[in-house]
Amino acid sequence: MPIVSYREALNQAMREEMARDERVFLLGEEVGQYNGAYKVSQGLLKEFGPWRVVDTPIAELGFCGLGVGAAMGGLRPIVEVMTWNFALLAYDQIVNNAAKLRSMSGGQLHCPVVFRGPQGAAHQLASQHSQVFESTYAFVPGLKVCVPATPRDAKGLLKTAIRDEDPVVFMESEVLYGTKGEVEDGELLIPFGQAEVARDGGDVTIVAWQKMRFVALKAAELLEREGVQACVIDPRTLRPFDLEAVLASVARTHRCVVVEEGWPWMGSGAQIADSIQRHGFDDLDAPILRVTGRDVPMPYAKPLEHEVLPTPERVVEACRRVLYRSP
């Protein structure tokens, strides 16, 4: 199977979908001439022309609104935001309009649009560039939220997102754009709400997505040295969420740790822990623990940033605690 980068995988997804369906078009800052702030739209302007690869003025609110209107007008827009940090301006269009249009109109109108771009810390970019907003979108009924970790998931989920009839918030990661992995050529559709077992094991379940999937896998390696087999589950989409897969693993391991990059209070991990205890209380032999980013705006200083982000060591420590093991 060909080895491609996360960035190329996203590019393939858009190229294939734009070639397949002429209603699909891309708009956002720097997506055309510049080939994308992170080069995700490389070559698309040349291939599809300026009508379908549209450089917009710097106005997240405006071009996300444009995407909503174009979707209502019968197209399948992909709106690229340079970073989700700056797309807070567009929260009104995404939450108050895109997410509610189907319900508000009694099903007369709907809004098949994909909002995509990177989120999360990317090495010393401080508080306004390092935020994880997946929970704020996954909170909203009417939206679907993807958080792919691997190039294969990036491609397969984006193609599914573009074909979806509902608005999709597609979270990417700046530090994953250059990572490589096996990705099928051509058609690849990964359904929403289907978790992937990134590593199997019967002693403890670790739920982690996007960058945290790799933190969890590293932790699993460290745990293996102690004779502990961790099962790492990547939900891949936070809404819909594959609760069954997580419950099935917890039924075997009886212990669970949820890892997320974002802030702890009201984070996605809190909801996941609640769902597990509600549906799988009798399977649990220990409280569910969470490993999260610290409850502070992200600092710039490298050693401080390191203290804020979840590390494999912190995940190992949490797993030891749910296993009642001392180091």
């Binding site: 405006g62 609104g65 209107g69 174009a70 209502m72 019968g74 269009q93 108050n96 309009n97 109108l109």
Partner: peptide, 20 residues
């Protein structure tokens, strides 16, 4: 199209529909 309470959100939407 659906009426939206937040002020002016329909303006870029109309532009998007025109673009479509």
């Amino acid at each position: 199209a659906s009426i939206s309470s937040p002020i002016a959100t329909q303006i870029p939407q109309a532009v998007g529909a025109g673009w479509a």
